[in-house]
Amino acid sequence: MSAGFNAISAMLKARSGLIVGPDKLYLLETRLAAMMRREGARDLDALADKLRPGNALEHEVVEAMTTNESLFFRDTKPFDALRLRILPRLHATRPAGAPLRIWSAAASTGQEAYSIAMIAAEMGAALGSRRIEIVGTDIAREPLQRAREGLYSQFEIQRGLPMQLLVKYFSKEEAQWRIKPALRAAVTFREWNLLADLRALGQFDVVFCRNVLIYFDAPTKTRVLEAMARQIAADGVLFLGGAETALGLTHAFHTAAGETAAYTPAAALARVA
């Protein structure tokens, strides 16, 4: 591998935890192609020469490599679990007036966070006057800006979103579809690196961190999982992606009985929080 590839790969790991091995050279070249053309960099070596710690270009490379596809109600199981079991249980066991807090930990363009918001809105009376706070975070600024705008293409609103929810929670703006203000207001988006200190985000009852860990090496996965365990209530739930697991990486989580790709914090770590 070229020195440029190695330098960019090392920078990505340090800044975001993302592992880009030599087998992912094509991914690096594809995702950075437009930037390289714009910068007049004929190869990765030339691009790497222009990167400086913390400069805008370095940030842009991180964004380009960490921005991943997002769709509404991706994999239906966690959303069914949230609606049918987890939110009803948490609502029944928490004191009146205490909000339930849900974190979409790799929010990207916001579809997951808004899917959660739609579920909470649809549950309506079943949650009484319980406040549901939804926080979406991502390391990349540009997709978060799109998430805040809540504006989606026709292609995006056709993937996973039932038409009844489209009619109820979106309005059409020319060729695009915008989440209505009430639902937009239900979600707060914040730029946040999962490798950074998570404590300022506060305690959550449910965390969606799906298809993120797959990009990390094992020590980074462990570090992120253990940091997350400290931010999840003892009776809370963490959802990972279908191809991910916390098992074998940390003792901070147990599998959540009866659920798929869902974990509850182990008591010892939860107490530390």
């Binding site: 026709q154 292609f155 056709q158 993937r159 996973g160 039932p162 038409m163 009844q164 489209l166 009619v167 979106f170 309005s171 059409k172």
Partner: peptide
């Protein structure tokens, strides 16, 4: 692809609504 058409489709008893152009992923998803 106007909202009024989706609303009419729901009222008439359709289960889902695809807006052309579509691909196999959208079709299979619906």
């Amino acid at each position: 692809n106007d909202m009024s058409y989706v609303e009419q489709a729901i009222a008439a008893g359709a289960q889902e609504f695809i807006m052309k152009p579509f691909d196999e992923e959208i079709l299979a998803g619906k």
